[in-house]
Amino acid sequence: MPLLKLHGNDLSPALEEPLHEVTLDDWRENPTAHTDATALVLPNAQSLSDIKCDLNGFSVVILEFPTFKDGRAYSQARLLRQRYGYTGEIRARGNVLRDQLWFMARCGVNAFEFSAENANDAKTALQEFSYAYQSCADKRAPVWRRRFDRSVAA
């Protein structure tokens, strides 16, 4: 289960550095007991409203993908990036499969506890699509903007 990290468009294996994890509830209950915590764990059912202050001081947020079908963390990732201005690492944990990486990356996930062994597969998976229709949490320009830029250039 390799840890992969995204730098720009490049996905590569990263060293497992030890994290000190704490869930949001535990952190809120007793922050002084977790002063050395580096990673904030957000369960799927966690509401993110009012999370902005809690994010300070964490360099890693861990989102859970318990099964292929459970897509709540996609919304959570996007909210962290686009609403709460979080710029640190968002790490996907759980059932992190090759054919979901593209969606996760688009929503702002930039580190993956990849469920399969072969990191090259993950790399390929992220290169399967050249364009995207929607604007999302990544830097990719949506197709409508490309169309517009092209027609202006023409």
Partner: peptide, 13 residues
């Protein structure tokens, strides 16, 4: 159609 195609956030509802 375009917006919903491969929507990254809403593919696992």
């Amino acid at each position: 159609r375009q917006w919903s195609t491969f929507h990254p956030e809403f593919s696992f509802l």
